[in-house]
Design a protein around this nucleic acid. Sequence first.
DNA 1: TCTCGCATAGGGCATTGCCCTATGTGTTGC
DNA 2: GCAACACATAGGGCAATGCCCTATGCGAGA
Lengths: 220, 220
Amino acid sequence: MNKSKSKIFLVDDHPLVREWLTNLIHQQPDLIVCGESEDVPRALQKISVIKPDVAIVDISIKHGSGIELIKSLKALHPDVAAIVLSMHDEKLYAERALRAGARGYVMKSETAKKVIMVIRQVLAGKIYMSESIAAVFAEKFVDGRLPASGSLVEQLSDRELEVFQLLGKGYETRQVAELMKISMKTVQAHCSHIKEKFKLTNAAELLREAVRWHENYPTS
Amino acid sequence: MNKSKSKIFLVDDHPLVREWLTNLIHQQPDLIVCGESEDVPRALQKISVIKPDVAIVDISIKHGSGIELIKSLKALHPDVAAIVLSMHDEKLYAERALRAGARGYVMKSETAKKVIMVIRQVLAGKIYMSESIAAVFAEKFVDGRLPASGSLVEQLSDRELEVFQLLGKGYETRQVAELMKISMKTVQAHCSHIKEKFKLTNAAELLREAVRWHENYPTS
DNA sequence: TCTCGCATAGGGCATTGCCCTATGTGTTGC
DNA sequence: GCAACACATAGGGCAATGCCCTATGCGAGA
């Protein structure tokens, strides 16, 4: 049955990007786009029906983060290989994504050729990451303990980072809770942990740092 | 000379997006991509030679912001109409972009059809913005006649500005009150007035604006 | 003088911040 | 395989703050 094409599912809230990917993939004789979705809940729903071979996921999608989707995928559909397609610099998210279970990480600034190459590698059972990310991983293997050599933000857990980003956009605690679909209490707990990690003493300083960071690394 | 197509110049550091736009534009009989660039300096250089009709600019490009590019374009090549194509929520940047001289603002989450529509509107000499952004502008025109030239901060009274700056530094209301040797109640009143003037709805947004302003205009 | 913006501040209720506790779930280490 | 740990989740409870309304004194203009 070599005739059957490998099925790719797209999760991205930019129609632009979905169109581009669809075109690109349909130019390949052995690949086909079997579905797409704009948000996490519908992505999970469709994927459980369609059972694609690969899911290409944008990190910063509406209604839940791409990282959460990848974790869910790994738990619910371990046969579906996730590839992250992000517009963000890989240093910020690649490690989190791969830890969450992604099998590839490509930036949107890469060429079309490379995207296809990554899909093929992942279909072949390999994991793709850029040389620079591979170097970071290797270093951490050798070194062992990782005392957050880069920015403090790397010390944050995935959910803490999400809260931090939303705060940076100017959302209140209540709004963050609604967006993340969790209790305000949990958001407050995340805030508390972020403050500990960053050695901040009050909510105003947390807000300031979140906004500062957001100014330098705008997300979605 | 109806044969000559309108020339579009692309400034975006994502090859993906440039490819997509090029394809899209070349499907139109009256439009053509006349050049592209990944960063601000080379964009300015090429534009001064090519003299396109429209420049489509990503806000968050490497090596200088899109806003700065638009300001330069307006100063150096006022005949080149700038359209911002951003992946960021318009509330965050649309106003800044339009103030800087952009004649259109489209999010990358819009459809291809809309992008082309905006290009055509701008070529026709119109300014395009979404309904929600237009509403914000209209409100500001009707409600408060804005000195426009320069920052909104000029609308603030002296004490309000002091509060605003201290908030931007990450002080809490209580600390601001202590530093200014006034009651917390007064600080809250100042905050309330600032929020009115800036049309902010809650304390988190006020904090965000204060920090942003502080980042751009550091005081003492 | 009357009005208007500004700075000051209190009252009062809803909301939030902040500290403590707690549970379930992975992961890591032995 | 069990213990320890980090993480995500969330409730309880009190103090602090946010936010709306009201109020006073002051100076600048009409």
